[in-house]
Every structure is written in C-alpha cells, then in structure tokens.
C-alpha cells in the first residue's frame, strides 16, 4: 500500500474538467502530508494532448486509458478499468469530481473495491497520518467530519471549493498507458440530448442569477437571463419557480436541487425558504432583491435591495454593461 493520491480526471467534450485541476491542487497538499506522490488518470479515446495539462497542474505521473470502449463514459466500463488500475497502484486516496459522471461512477467503483466513499466533499485534513474529511449534509444545513476505515479511501469532491493551482506549462510527468479491458457493459449511452445554446453550469459557475416566484410569469425569466448574459453567469431558479413549471428542474437551486458555491449569488424575487438557503448559503457573496423587507433571504445577504425587481434588475443589467464597457 502506498501513500499516493490518485485523481480521476474527467474529460468532457475534449477537455479536462476544471474540478480535476482543483483536485490536483488539493491532492498535492494531501499527498505531501501523507508523504506520497500525486497521480492522475484519464479515460477516453484519442486523448492525445488532452491529458498533458495534468502534469502542468501537478501530477507526478499520468495514467491514460485510451481505447474505443472508453470513448463514451459507462459506469461499468470505467469501473472495470479503474478497479484494475487502483488494485495495482494501491493509492491511499482516490479523488473523483462530484460531477454527474463522478457521482455515478464512484459508488460502483467503491463497492467493487470494498472501499468507503465520502460524497461531495469540501475539506480534507491529515491527522496522525489519517484523513478527516469535511462534507456538508442536509444540503449544507449541517457540516459533518467523517473518517474512512477501508483502504483505499475514496471521495468525490465538490466543484468550486478548492483553488485551481498555478499551472507550470514546462512541467512534464511520465505517462503510462493503462491496458484496457472494459468487460461486459450492459448500460450504454445511446444518445446525448444537448440543451439549445451555451449554458453555464450551475455547480461550476462563478456568478449565478436566480429567479423565484417574485417574477410572476415564466416569460419574465428573460430579465434574469439578460442580467446573467451580461455577467457571463449561470441562471438558477427557486423550487417555487420550478414547481410552477417556469423552469426545468435542472435549474433548481436548493435542497432538492443543486447546491452551489459561486463567488456571487443574485437572488431575484426569492423569499429564501430554508430548503433554498441550504443550496446557496455558502456562496461567497449574496445579493438579494425582494419586495418584502422581512424576507428571510435578507438574513443571509451581503447586499440587499428592498424593492420591485422589475425596476431594479434592468438597471443592474445596464449598469454592469456600462462598467464592463469601461473596463
């Protein structure tokens, strides 16, 4: 058994996901404390130079599973290959991004390895050579510190929590090809239905503009979208707006939606029910616009405007446009 940390780097649409770089930064810190190396593995087909940044961001060694059977993610195929690799490497800790892929893959892989798995983690501390892992529970209403007992330790890591390290583009790392036997794959992706237009992913967004029942009509989400467009922000929605059918569930922020940690969260016409606050309370800055001065959202807001969002939001959009033009 080694003291190494292995980062499973997800490739989506021909590029490494940002959370992989965040994990390399945090993984480096953990590996130094444990006295091990930082390893990374990427799976796909025709990977080529796509895996090169893994060395730039700190991996000491990069493993590549490049095979037609790895082109599309499957939980079974990826589990078969990774379980073999992890069995050989015996790392102390395996990190995966808490993305839709990581969350789908990690439990099957952990079960195959007989390992424990801490989900959606936001902190790691090495204590007496052992790990203490921080993870929000009850959608962030509480924070748990957990420990694992079965090696390798495994964790999925939340996006936007750890800083991306400064890359060193001259840095190189030995690359090893992983022999691929995908085995029997029963569940297969037959089609990918993409959303029309480019959409900033909520869990990775730096700025989020969310709308709630205060918008009154689904068409009024256009106001939110305009402001988001100017800021390069993702669009979110409250449960009330989703339950009313104004927005698809994939937009929902809160306990039964997405938990987000942007630099700035702008809540427009959202009162701030407990289950909504749970999903966005850890944002760095919160800005709330609501007619009701007693709305609970103001209790967590760094900036607030008590007023009509139909008057406030268009002014914000124009003002930010001006600022960006000046900058």
């Amino acid at each position: 058994m080694s003291n190494d940390v292995l980062v499973v780097a997800e490739i989506r649409e021909g590029a490494i996901k940002k959370v992989a770089f965040e994990m390399l930064g945090e993984g480096r810190r953990i590996a130094s404390e444990l006295g091990g190396n930082l390893l990374a593995v990427a799976l796909g087909h025709g990977i080529g130079d796509v895996a090169a940044p893994l060395a730039h961001y700190g991996a000491d060694k990069v493993f590549v599973a490049d095979d037609p059977t790895m082109a599309d993610y499957t939980a079974e195929g990826y589990t078969n290959v990774l379980a073999g690799l992890i069995g050989e490497l015996e790392p102390a800790l395996v990190l995966l991004g808490a993305t839709t892929q990581g969350k789908d893959l990690a439990p099957r892989l952990a079960a195959r390895l007989g390992a424990g798995l801490a989900s959606d983690c936001t902190g790691f501390a090495v204590q007496d050579g052992d790990l203490r892992i921080t993870r929000p529970i009850y959608a962030g209403k509480a924070t748990a510190i957990v420990r694992e007992t079965a090696r390798p330790y495994m964790a999925t890591v939340r996006s936007n929590i750890f800083a991306v390290p400064e890359p060193d583009t001259s840095r190189e790392a030995p690359t090893e090809t992983v022999s691929v036997d995908a085995g029997d794959i029963r569940a297969k992706v037959v089609e990918l239905i993409k959303e029309a237009g480019e959409r900033v992913e909520l869990t990775e967004a730096d700025i989020i503009v969310s709308g709630g029942r205060g918008l009154k009509e689904p068409e009024n989400f256009a106001l939110i979208e305009e402001l988001a467009g100017v800021l390069g922000a993702a669009v979110g929605a409250s449960r009330a707006a989703v339950d009313a059918g104004w927005k698809d569930h994939s937009y929902q922020v809160g306990q039964t939606g997405k938990v987000v940690t942007p630099t700035l969260y702008i809540a427009c016409g959202i009162s701030g029910a407990i289950q909504h606050l749970a999903g966005m309370k850890t944002s760095k800055h919160i800005f709330a616009i609501n007619k009701d001065p007693d709305a609970p959202i103001f209790k967590v807001a760094d900036y607030g405007i008590v007023g009509d969002l139909f008057k406030v939001v268009p002014v914000l959009t124009e003002e930010f446009k001006k600022m960006l033009a000046e900058a």
């Binding site: 424990g116 209403k141 510190i145 957990v146 919160i286 807001a301």
Partner: peptide, 18 residues
C-alpha cells in the same frame, strides 16, 4: 467504512447592507 466523527452547524452569515 465511512463514519461520522462530528457534526456541526455552519457559521451563521451576518446580514449586510440593505
């Protein structure tokens, strides 16, 4: 294989400029 060591409440946010 995974057990809770401790649970705590996140720090309350202070309300800001309204």
């Amino acid at each position: 294989k995974v057990s809770f060591v401790e649970v705590s409440l996140p720090p309350e946010r202070e309300s800001g400029k309204v």
